[in-house]
Amino acid sequence: MQALTNRAKPVDRRPMTFMEKIYLPAIAKGMGITLKHIFQKKETVRYPEQKRPFSPVFRGLHVLNRDAEGRENCTACGLCAVACPAEAITMEAAERKPGEENLYREEKYAARYEINMLRCIFCGFCEEACPKDAIYLTETFAPAHYKREGFIYGKKDLLVPMPGEKK
């Protein structure tokens, strides 16, 4: 069979020479390598103080967007749930009542909107599927929880806060 690359090296099967058999030179060489590493640059990132920058295309936790007047964009069309390959998104639609026009932009809105972050693969298909620009992936990741329930993010976790309102 022809080699794919020219990097393959035949294994040296010659019997060991005396110097190789006494192992000590090899051990000394190995110890030299480890000693050298003491003085090399440390790769550790001291996490809470020092954070690695995310890549610009990083896809993290989702948010549900509001428009400029603070109304929820989502109209509970369900396209994101259909697009989701991991079936992480569930929602329940509800009709907008009169007097709620300042809360929801369209006549229909998501009364319940949940994403299971343990199922989500952060592919971003929901973001692409959304016709209303309602869902976006941000640059944060899901923090740890003691229970599985903690990873099911509801509307209150996902919605961006109202302008001027603390989350």
């Binding site: 480890t34 000693l35 590493h37 003491i38 090399q40 640059k41 440390k42 790769e43 550790t44 001291r46």
Partner: peptide
Amino acid sequence: GVMQDRIGPN
């Protein structure tokens, strides 16, 4: 730690 390019307990 230092031999593996880490810092060790700090």
